[in-house]
Amino acid sequence: MERKYAVLVVDMLNDFVTGALKCDRGLAIVPKTVELLKGCREKGIPVIFCNDAHLKGIDHELKLWGDHAIAGTRGAEVIPELELSDKDYVVPKRRYSGFFHTDLDLLLKELGVDTVVITGLHAHMCVRHTSADAYQLGYDIVVPKDATDSFTEEDYNMGIRYLKEVYGAEITDVDSFLASL
Rank of each mutant, 00 (worst) to 15 (best):
T148W: 00
S180K: 09
E42D: 14
H68M: 09
G26C: 09
A132C: 09
A20L: 12
G75C: 13
L84G: 09
K56I: 04
I45R: 03
V117Q: 05
I29W: 05
I58E: 13
I118F: 02
D103I: 03
T119A: 11
T115E: 02
G39L: 09
F177R: 02
A179S: 13
K4Q: 14
D15M: 04
V142M: 09
A123C: 11
D155K: 03
I79D: 01
L137G: 07
K32D: 10
A69K: 00
Y89L: 05
L21E: 03
R3S: 11
H124D: 15
A179N: 13
D67K: 03
D88S: 12
R41N: 10
D11T: 01
L62A: 10
V127C: 10
L21V: 15
S180N: 11
G98Q: 09
Y135M: 05
A134M: 03
A71Y: 00
V17A: 00
A169Q: 04
K93E: 08
V127N: 03
S131D: 10
C126D: 04
V113L: 08
V127R: 02
L178W: 07
L121A: 04
Q136W: 12
R161H: 14
I171F: 08
G168T: 05
R74L: 13
D114M: 10
E110R: 14
Y135F: 15
D52C: 00
G39W: 08
D11Q: 03
K32Q: 15
G57T: 06
E170S: 05
G66Q: 08
V9A: 07
D103N: 14
L84I: 01
N51L: 05
K63H: 08
G66Y: 05
V166Q: 14
A76P: 02
Y156Q: 06
L181Q: 12
E153W: 11
P80T: 07
M12P: 02
C23T: 07
H68S: 04
D133K: 04
F99E: 04
V10Y: 00
K43L: 10
D24I: 10
S176G: 06
V174M: 11
V117A: 09
D15P: 13
L55E: 12
A53H: 05
C23K: 02
G66I: 07
H60R: 10
N14Q: 11
E42S: 12
K109C: 12
K56A: 15
L108Q: 11
R128F: 07
D155V: 03
G57N: 09
P31I: 02
S180T: 09
G75A: 13
E153L: 13
L163P: 07
R128D: 00
G19R: 02
D133L: 12
G112R: 06
V10K: 01
D86E: 14
G112K: 11
H68I: 03
R95A: 03
G72R: 02
G98Y: 09
V142F: 04
Y135T: 12
G26V: 04
L13T: 04
G98K: 06
A179H: 06
S176L: 06
K87Y: 09
V7P: 05
A69G: 05
